[in-house]
């Protein structure tokens, strides 16, 4: 589904990603872990086409297509989604209207019927149950005045509306209490399908107890230093990240 080859990227002329290789197949859940500032969010944002980042080398194929040939909105309609670490507030734009436009843009691209406001209302009422969101949030301005946790709920609601093939979830657990984390983790699991894939970005292994990855990659200094199975997440939980960095520096010998 997603194939990243030797990807390098910089922001304001500073290299952040220094050669990333990653393969994600349908049905897989991957986790990117690593210390703060290692480039995790950067990787996600580069994939979805954030304008602040410059891709300086490498190649990314999404479903066989060169991702960097596609505008960010085209990538989104092709099934790429990113749940942001810090979702932005948009005063004056109603959450429901935003969700409906996003839904209809995707439906249009896929040749499905668009939903009018009443149809969408029925549709969205089902979806908000999945993330235990109160209906009142639909009428509010998009993310405006939402708490950190409510913003994250809204991100997963958007994911539920768009049903992306590949969802990149950046620090879903930040700002969430333990119950909300379980609710959203469960929601993400329910949305996962055999033809979909997930890339979970996290500093803390906690979320991986609910959303269980088959593959764990440790990112540090813009490079993937170590890869492993679910066991690696547990090891990181116990030992932190420093040993991975040291191990990489000494070429794997201790």
């Amino acid at each position: 589904m997603l194939s990243i080859k030797n990807l390098t990227a910089s922001i304001n002329g500073t290299p952040v990603l220094k050669g990333i290789d990653l393969e994600i197949k349908a049905g897989e859940i991957h986790a990117i872990m690593g210390p703060n500032g290692s480039g995790k969010s950067t990787l996600g944002k580069v994939l979805v086409g954030h304008p602040s980042y410059e891709v300086t080398g490498g190649e990314v194929l999404f479903e066989g297509k060169n991702l960097f040939d596609l505008e960010p909105d085209v990538r989104a309609r092709a099934g790429l989604f990113m749940g942001f670490q810090h979702p932005i507030e948009v005063p004056g734009v109603s959450n429901a209207a935003f969700l409906r436009l996003a839904y209809n843009k995707k439906a249009e691209a896929e040749g499905r019927d668009e939903l009018d406001p009443l149809e969408f209302d029925d549709f969205i009422r089902e979806k908000i149950k999945l993330v235990s969101m109160k209906e009142a949030f639909l009428d509010r301005s998009l993310n405006e005045g939402f708490s950190g946790g409510e913003k994250k709920r809204n991100e997963i609601l958007q994911m539920a509306v768009l049903e992306p093939k590949l969802a990149i979830l950046d620090e879903l657990d930040s700002g969430l209490d333990i119950d909300a984390l379980r609710v959203l983790g469960d929601a993400v699991n329910k949305l996962m399908r055999p033809d979909h894939a997930l890339l979970v970005i996290t500093h803390f292994p906690r979320i991986l107890e609910t959303i269980r990855p088959q593959f764990v990659h440790v990112l540090s200094g813009g490079r993937i230093l170590k890869q492993g199975g679910p066991g690696l997440a547990i090891e990181l939980e116990e030992r932190g990240y420093d040993w991975v960095v040291e191990e990489a520096a000494t070429g794997g010998h201790r």
């Binding site: 909105d73 989604f81 979702p87 004056g92 209207a97 691209a109 768009l162």
Partner: peptide, 19 residues
């Protein structure tokens, strides 16, 4: 943010301005 949700820039601008 709008674009990442599949909404083209010009429609995003008009939605924000209308709001």
């Amino acid at each position: 943010y709008f674009q990442q949700r599949g909404i083209p820039a010009e429609e995003a601008i008009s939605m924000i301005i209308n709001g």
